[in-house]
Computed example of a mutant assay.
Amino acid sequence: MASVLVLTGSPSAASRTAALAHHIGGELSLAGHDVSTLAIRTLPPQALLAADTGAPEIAAAVRAVIGVDALVVATPIYKAAYSGLLKAFLDLLPQAALAGKIVLPIATGGTIAHLLAIDYSLRPVLASLGARHVTAGRFVLDVHIDHTSGGPVLVDDAARECVTRTAAAFREAIELAADEDRRLVAAP
């Protein structure tokens, strides 16, 4: 199975975005993938903002991104764009950091007006970093996420079904890429 990094770009420790990302990571783990998580907010802020790729924690985070097969990129949407925290981290990555990777963008926000932020602000950045395939992303309204009770994360049935389908399509894209890679290796 594939190695998957769940990258969370929320500045908040108790975040709906992180809860949604962990929910998707759990589905991927249940499917047999090796899932790890990187909360960007835990990186040293001075090194992150100074783009100090030599700082040990920053260098380890960059290596973690480069070393996986697939990536879930989760962000809250603020003012129709992904978080500045995520932007600061993505700016540190080498130009081809996502080469060969399958990427799933997910976002949360307070209004449906932010629905297109994935396609208009995040997807182009992920593609510019060389992603092999950026799968269809998923935007989930904050009111559909319970990040505090310890119960089900997605409290809206329609949102839960949409997220499940999105995670399934991501898993399928990972499997298709692995099959394609095996065929290329086996070809004379």
Rank of each mutant, 00 (worst) to 15 (best):
Val35Tyr: 06
Gly32Leu: 08
Leu92Lys: 09
Lys87Met: 06
Leu176Ile: 07
Gly109Ala: 04
Ser29Arg: 15
Val35Trp: 10
Arg183Trp: 06
Ser10His: 05
Cys162Gln: 15
Arg123Gly: 03
Val4Gly: 05
Asp142Tyr: 00
Ala159Tyr: 05
Val72Ile: 15
Ala168Thr: 13
Leu104Val: 06
Val6Ile: 11
Pro188Leu: 12
Asp146Arg: 04
Leu7Asp: 06
Ala107Asn: 06
Tyr82Trp: 13
Ala136Ser: 05
Pro124Ser: 02
His147Cys: 01
Ser36Glu: 13
Val103Tyr: 10
Tyr82Ala: 11
Ala74Gly: 15
Ser128Gln: 01
Ala50Tyr: 02
Asp52Gln: 06
Ala178Arg: 14
Val155Asn: 04
Glu57His: 08
Val4Thr: 10
Phe139Cys: 01
Pro11Asn: 07
Gly151Tyr: 00
Tyr82Phe: 15
Ala136Trp: 00
Val35Asp: 09
His23Phe: 12
Gln46Ala: 14
Phe89Val: 07
Thr111Leu: 05
His23Ala: 08
Phe139Tyr: 06
Thr42Gln: 09
Leu141Lys: 02
Val68Ala: 12
Asp91Phe: 03
Val125Leu: 00
Leu115Lys: 03
Pro124Asp: 03
Val4His: 07
Gly26Leu: 13
Lys101Ile: 04
Thr135Asp: 00
Ile40Arg: 02
Leu93Trp: 02
Gly100Gln: 07
Ala31Trp: 10
Gly130Asn: 04
Val72Glu: 14
Lys87His: 08
Pro94Glu: 03
Asp146Met: 00
Ala96Met: 09
Ala178Trp: 10
Val103Ile: 10
Pro11Cys: 06
Arg132Val: 00
Gly109His: 06
Thr8Val: 09
His144Gln: 03
Ser121Gly: 02
Ala81Phe: 15
Thr37Glu: 14
Gly150Glu: 01
Asp156Phe: 03
Val140Lys: 05
Asp156Lys: 08
Tyr82Thr: 10
Arg183Ser: 10
Ala60Ser: 08
Gly150Lys: 01
Ile66Leu: 12
Ile112Trp: 12
Lys101Tyr: 07
Leu30Thr: 11
Val134Leu: 01
Val65His: 07
Ala2Lys: 09
Ile112Cys: 07
Ala70Ser: 15
Pro152Gln: 06
Arg41Gly: 03
Ile58Asn: 07
Thr8Lys: 08
Leu28Phe: 13
Val134Gln: 01
Ala169Asp: 13
Cys162Thr: 14
Asp156Asn: 11
His22Ser: 14
Leu184Gly: 10
Leu104Ser: 07
His144Cys: 00
Val103Arg: 12
Ala2Pro: 14
Asp156Ser: 05
Ser15Thr: 10
Ile145His: 05
Arg182His: 09
Leu5Lys: 13
Val125Thr: 09
